[in-house]
């Protein structure tokens, strides 16, 4: 078991290193010249731009640049952009913003709690989706079941941002069911926190639970027809326990696998949700950085996102081995 986790851990670290290289390469080979961006527009001479270029180390080979950057991730470094202009970037240093010249990592960490808060909605759609899916599987072939399948098709045909926008338009602006509140940290005001997140959570749940409902429905129908479910019935297990214990246990395994990746994507930044409901999280920050061409923030977001997905995969693998004892041997 420990060997299994260790092997997974090693491959996860390798994936993160490979991702960081790709992100770095995209960053250096990209069309945007960092020196140009850091050089104040009105007073930028060619000389000054060249100086910044040199002090950033952009004239050195890409491999050396990467190693400098990688070292900074672990021990921190001073990012100097021209003589007399230097920013102390403590570990983990992911570069400095072109706009406010501040280290990227602390800025993103500040935004992070808001994104985590939104991502908690993921658990809601998982739970709601699985419950609906199980009920539909139990009523397979009935009008309730057909209604569910039809509504999942309709909802998945509508883009998420449209649903979120309409929800905001009607539920907040037109009918005033939800008030127009801004995000407050959980530690400051738990009720305000939940109040501000209620609508994003609702929209996420309504939109994504149908996918999970359909997915768990299929998985559940399959496991309800398994021989071991028939054995449980033949031993006198009550129908509710057959469903909730014997069949669901097997049916949730593939659902959890999908959810792990999905949840990581949520953590990496819920761009639409944050932008539409005005919550200052990772996604909104990344969105703003794109319009401002603030490359270090974008690449840091991509990197953090990939780390989340790798961690989620790792967790899914570990959870999987607890759910399915057969995995532990391999």
């Amino acid at each position: 078991m420990i060997g299994y986790i260790l092997r997974r851990l090693v491959s996860a670290v390798l994936v993160v290193i490979a991702t960081s290289m790709i992100v770095f390469l995209l960053f250096t080979l990209g069309p945007s010249d960092p020196a140009q961006r850091l050089c104040s527009a009105d007073r930028c001479t060619e000389e000054r731009r060249a100086l910044i270029h040199q002090s950033l180390g952009l004239d050195k080979p890409v491999v050396e640049q990467y190693l400098t950057w990688a070292k900074g991730v672990f021990v921190g470094r001073d990012v100097s952009y021209g003589p007399g202009f230097s920013v102390d970037c403590p570990a983990p240093c992911l570069g400095i913003s072109y706009i406010n010249k501040e280290p990227v990592f602390p800025t993103l960490m500040e935004r992070f709690p808001a994104t985590i808060s939104i991502a908690l909605g993921g658990f809601m759609y998982l739970i709601v989706g699985v419950i609906i899916g199980v009920l539909a599987a139990r009523r397979r072939g009935t009008s309730t079941d057909r209604g569910l399948v039809a509504s999942t098709l309709i909802i998945s045909a509508i883009p998420y941002y449209l649903v979120a926008l309409l929800a905001y338009l009607y539920l907040v602006l037109k009918w005033g069911i939800f008030s127009e509140t801004s995000y407050v940290p959980l530690t400051e005001d738990p009720i305000g926190w939940a109040g501000a997140l209620a609508l994003p959570w609702l929209v996420l749940t309504v939109y994504f639970c149908v996918t999970y409902a359909r997915f768990s429905r299929g998985s559940m129908i399959e496991s309800l027809s398994e021989d071991y479910v028939r054995t449980a019935r033949a031993m006198g297990v009550s129908e509710s326990k057959v469903v909730a214990k014997h069949a669901l246990r097997a049916a949730v395994v593939p659902v959890i696998t999908i959810f792990g990746i999905d949840f990581a994507t949520l953590l990496a930044g819920t761009v639409f949700t944050e932008a539409i409901f005005g919550i200052n999280g990772i996604g909104r920050t990344a969105l703003a950085s794109i319009t401002q061409g603030d490359l270090p923030i974008i690449s840091a977001t991509v990197l953090i996102g990939s780390v989340f997905i790798v961690i989620a995969n790792l967790l899914v693998d570990i959870i999987y081995s607890f759910l399915d004892p057969r995995v532990r041997l391999s």
């Binding site: 398994e226 071991y228 054995t231 006198g236 009550s238 246990r249 097997a250």
Partner: peptide, 28 residues
Amino acid sequence: SKSTLRRLRGNDVAMIFQDPLTALHPFF
């Protein structure tokens, strides 16, 4: 009734199924 059947199943009447690899639960 369901409860009558449940009391009977596995208690007064039990069944041995073909192919125990699929007839027993792999996760318990």
